[in-house]
């Protein structure tokens, strides 16, 4: 055998594609197509030949197997469930997961959902993050492309990162040593992304506090962010936002809208009765 390799661009591209494909020989899965690339690895659609259903197969470097196993153990309605894990002949590890249908958060916003729906998505994301933090897992790369909203309104946080994942600049906290508050920063950036242009200033203030440059000036954890969003939804004052008197009146009025309408109706009826008696 003699070789004089001169690789053209087209052959090089072909080799890059085929050498990266996982060899699923000996598993129950048949490879279909690549559906995404993330910080941790490549995701493919595949068919589970035993259960005759489509699944997602995530393939990653063997060096990350330990942390990836930790991520695979997370069980939460907002985290894509893992069915099975294994090792490929070339040493890479793979996870078979539920194939989630739906739209990424950026695509979801194209439908211009109401503010309440947008906040619901952020809250579901926050709940998944808070659960993962309790299990000792950070996301490290939270961004709209890693949030999927399903056809029934279900929300999944995807592509959980591992040590060494660089993150995405617009959503990445400035510090190099990441902890829970780095994910708080990313959640704040996600909140900014999800808010409409005319969002109430209190929500902008929550996002701004979550995204403070100094980690110790941010909310201490994701639960604190969720509590603030909850206070906003309940019409209560938000700690991150110093209200003007007028804003306070407007918020109280909105919070007690039904009572005010009843009082107005009562006053109106009394007024009419007063005039009826006078004439």
């Amino acid at each position: 055998m003699d070789l004089n390799v001169e690789l053209s661009d087209s052959v090089l591209q072909h080799l890059r594609e085929v050498a990266d494909l996982p060899d699923l020989t000996g598993t129950r899965y048949q490879l279909q197509e690549e559906i995404g690339r993330g910080g941790l690895g490549v995701v493919y659609a595949a068919r589970d030949t035993q259960l005759d259903r489509r699944v997602a197969i995530k393939v990653m470097d063997a060096a990350w197997a330990g942390e990836a196993r930790l991520i695979a153990r997370l069980e939460h309605p907002g985290i894509v469930p893992v069915y099975e894990s294994g090792t490929l002949p070339d040493g890479r590890v793979f996870y078979a997961m539920k194939l989630v249908a739906g739209a990424h958060a950026d695509g979801y916003l194209a439908g211009n959902p109401p503010l309440g729906e947008r906040l619901r998505v952020v809250q579901r994301v926050g709940e998944a993050l808070a659960y993962a933090h309790n299990c000792g897992v950070l996301h490290r790369d939270l961004k709209p492309r890693n949030v999927m909203v399903g056809p029934f309104g279900e929300v999944y946080v995807m592509d959980w990162g591992v040590e060494g994942v660089a993150g995405t600049p617009a959503f990445r906290a400035p510090e190099t040593s990441l902890d829970q508050r780095s994910d708080v920063y990313a959640l704040g950036a996600l909140l900014v992304f999800m808010l409409p242009a005319d969002a109430p200033p209190a929500l902008g203030a929550i996002a701004a506090k979550a995204m403070r440059r100094q980690p110790e000036e941010r909310y201490p954890d994701v639960a604190a962010v969720l509590r603030e969003i909850g206070r906003f939804q309940d019409g209560l004052a938000v700690e991150a936002h110093a209200e003007s008197p007028w804003q306070r009146v407007r918020r109280l009025a909105k919070r007690n809208e039904v009572l005010l309408w009843l009082l107005a109706a009562y006053a109106g009826v009394k007024f009419l009765l007063f005039f009826a008696r006078s004439f």
Partner: peptide, 25 residues
């Protein structure tokens, strides 16, 4: 791009040698 190309050129040489050594013609 040339870095990628050269990596594959070298790896193909390694593969060819491994095939020859293992009789996997």
């Amino acid at each position: 791009q040339e870095w990628r190309r050269q990596l594959f050129v070298l790896a193909i040489e390694d593969l060819r040698a491994a095939c020859a050594a293992a009789g996997k013609h």
